[in-house]
């Protein structure tokens, strides 16, 4: 079997630049080459968008050809994609129109957590234990610390809210950050040794 098709070749392609960047980080040698390698990461990002576009076209094109489930929505996707793509090059005004009046409201709707949060709070924030009560009290103090009206009702809300932020929250976030860092290092070692191959789709 050709060496290029073997998994080991892909691992070498991944590990060698990784080791080079590590070497550059700790020694400072070959800085221009390292900068260029990092820029190649951005180029690969762009290529991955091309792959994503191809995948999108293939999946939805097949759906339309076979008149599969909800194939009419696949047509909408194609029309939207082509319109947006062409407008970005041919007519910036139309592009801005689509961005302002179609994409942005849709993204706002998806990202708007206010209503969902309220429903979650209304239905789910029921305490069944003393720890639950403690958690809720902490949330209430934090909310009232952030809202300008909190300190106006009682200055203690700000004081206690800040203490919650600066002491228990800090301790927990510090622990999480350290654990994440240790986990990253462990993953890096496994990748260098070739034991971690998630990037190959395994």
């Amino acid at each position: 079997m050709s060496f290029i098709k073997q998994k080991e070749f892909a691992i070498i392609l991944f590990v060698l630049p990784l080791l080079f960047l590590l070497f550059n980080y700790y020694t400072g040698i070959a800085e221009p080459a390292a900068s260029e390698l990092i820029n190649w990461g951005s180029y690969l990002w762009n290529f991955s968008m091309i792959i994503g576009t191809y995948s999108l076209f293939r999946v939805h094109g097949t759906n339309i050809a076979k008149k599969g489930k909800d194939w009419s929505y696949s047509v909408v996707i194609f029309i939207s994609f082509v319109t947006y793509f062409v407008a970005s090059y041919v007519s910036p005004d139309v592009f801005k129109l689509i961005l302002d009046y179609i994409q942005t409201p849709i993204m706002l709707t998806i990202w708007m957590g206010g209503f969902a949060t309220l429903t979650m709070v209304f239905r789910g924030a029921r305490t069944k234990s003393y720890l639950g009560v403690l958690l809720l009290l902490g949330s209430i103090f934090t909310v009232l610390r952030m809202a300008p009206i909190g300190p106006l009702i009682w200055p203690g809300f700000h004081t206690i809210g800040m203490w919650i932020n600066d002491v228990p929250n800090m301790a927990v976030m510090r622990a999480i950050t350290i654990v994440m860092g240790v986990g990253l290092i462990a993953t890096l070692v496994r990748e260098i040794l070739g034991k971690e191959t998630h990037y190959l789709g395994d």
């Binding site: 709070v121 952030m146 809202a147």
Partner: peptide
């Protein structure tokens, strides 16, 4: 609006509990 929404959220929590 932030002030009122915050107070409203807290009122909902207390009411549901």
């Amino acid at each position: 609006a932030t002030n009122l929404a915050s107070l409203y959220g807290i009122a909902l929590i207390l009411y549901s509990n």
